[in-house]
Design a protein around this nucleic acid. Sequence first.
DNA 1: AGGTCGGATTGAAAGGTTTCAACTCAATGC
DNA 2: GCATTGAGTTGAAACCTTTCAATCCGACCT
Lengths: 343, 343
Amino acid sequence: MTVGPGTPRSASVKDVAAAAGVSLGTVSNVLNRPDRVSDATRRRVEQAMAELGFVRNESARQLRAGRSHTLAYVMLDAGNPFFTDVAAGIELAAEAAGLALFLCNSDSRIEREASYLTHLEQQRVQGILVTPVDPDAASLVALAQRGTPVVVVDRVRREQALCSVAVDDVLGGRLAVEHLIDRGHRRVAFVGGPPTIGQVRDRLDGARKAWAEAGLPGKDLLVVSSSALTVAEGRSAGARIAGLTARRRPTAAFCANDLVALGLLQQAIRSGWRIPDDLAIVGYDDIDFAEAAAVPLTSVRQPRHELGRMAAELVLDESGNPEHEHQQVVFQPELVARASTLG
Amino acid sequence: MTVGPGTPRSASVKDVAAAAGVSLGTVSNVLNRPDRVSDATRRRVEQAMAELGFVRNESARQLRAGRSHTLAYVMLDAGNPFFTDVAAGIELAAEAAGLALFLCNSDSRIEREASYLTHLEQQRVQGILVTPVDPDAASLVALAQRGTPVVVVDRVRREQALCSVAVDDVLGGRLAVEHLIDRGHRRVAFVGGPPTIGQVRDRLDGARKAWAEAGLPGKDLLVVSSSALTVAEGRSAGARIAGLTARRRPTAAFCANDLVALGLLQQAIRSGWRIPDDLAIVGYDDIDFAEAAAVPLTSVRQPRHELGRMAAELVLDESGNPEHEHQQVVFQPELVARASTLG
DNA sequence: AGGTCGGATTGAAAGGTTTCAACTCAATGC
DNA sequence: GCATTGAGTTGAAACCTTTCAATCCGACCT
């Protein structure tokens, strides 16, 4: 009945077959093609399974079948709500396809990312979604070429060797700055860095384009660079802005992500500034905490769920469709205006 | 050399053995006991592996060995920073033990939790950590009895059938309210719910004990209940507090978690209150966003990393040590005082 | 020369599942 | 009464790795 502690390893189909007085092929049929088995036999087998506490051995199953029932997402930072929201989108698609989704957190460490990718490849997972530390790494292509479907999430790859799903960051930067120009700002700071991050470069790029197209002088779009996209760095940027002379001080700031924007907002409030009268702020990502900030944050929203869902669909297509062709999907961001710029 | 797309399933030890002109036992030795193989042979085998793009098949390995190199954490809500921090602690211990950690998000849905637990059991993972939707479910004990080590995280179990790791929530509630009493508050609101959540009950319990021990009248500790522990619910609670008459309105609020506290804080600022002069606020969990709030939040800190690390160590002990005994570990929380109560 | 030792290598067996060609047997058709 | 049908059942083979007892062989000893 119940199995005491220290029991030998769990029952196998063979044991079940013996207990039910059938062959092991029949047990397998009960599991995989119940319609081919007579009702009486099926019931007998099911009862034997229950009594023995039979648990299918997925390893053996996978070994035989060659494929698993699992998808994995190797994320850059499980602590950043943006990525967990992307993961939620992936999960939706995985669930619909009847697959389990395992999340792995590389925490931006390249050796941990590599270790997870190896582990997942050895497990023969059905597909890997990854937001890589280095989106141009050749190891990703090699991985895909050895047969595991790979989709790059939230990073664009120049070449066509892999599927990727991303959001147009140049457009996002443009939207943010056009909004600020519309609101009458003529001296604006871009806060973010380091410039090695593709996202940061692109968002700044878009900001500059919008600025130039409005005919405004480049020197009035100043860059306040940070060493990471964190709350702490946002605060420190705020302190630097406070240190500027009144003539140079910007009337608005566009931050490379919401964490930075929240830090900046916090520092601004500490300095006694009114938001947005003394300083308007635009963030990026529109994480849930953006709306919940002391002054609700205007932010550039990315379709996070869509991003995840599309990535999952691409990886499933690559895994199941022999005519699969690699695609680079780019979504459009959208500005969500709130009190931090609207007054 | 490189393997084109549409290649048949990857090379096996047998293929490597053939390519290197050795037996398959030798290939296995190169992988598992390199010291037993002569240098020349080892090099030849390694080269063959590289040329064929050999990838170990973890399923076959596991099938033979009976155990995997994986731990899993089934979390209640991947979007709550508290749980991702616990996961980070688990990861530390898993990494030290040379195991991979897979995260699964049940999203508080009982059927998804069940589906993940089944999947993980079938995969024969080395251990499962879980913050369950229902900590008293019998299915967890059954799972453990069938042979998979299980540790309950952040929930206490009455009986001794399982290991569990938690933080003393009664003490946490006590600390929060004692702090408020120390700061001179004599009318305090507890904000949180629903009371079906064990944490909520315990924290309120602790609050009441501290209140009674200070000799204060029970009616001055009012309960503002919410239907979930979210930012939105915090805002709504704030609105309800604002609606109270001046005589009844509390001078301080103790929130069941930081998300609620952040919502309340936001609403309070909108109402034009000064924090903490018009309303002091204490949160719970001390998530990173608590310190980054517009008014840095006083909060009850739980040793999140420790929680995760200890849980992982218990599950490893259960998996490796035949003399393992189930333990209920309870950590002490700690109050972190910040501007939201200190003025 | 004969014997011993030990490092290096071998190959069969085991682990649990799924598949599939082959088989059984009762019912149906002629 | 014999052939045909088909639903139900069977068991060997395959998937890939690891282990371990057995074997090989060159070096060393007497």
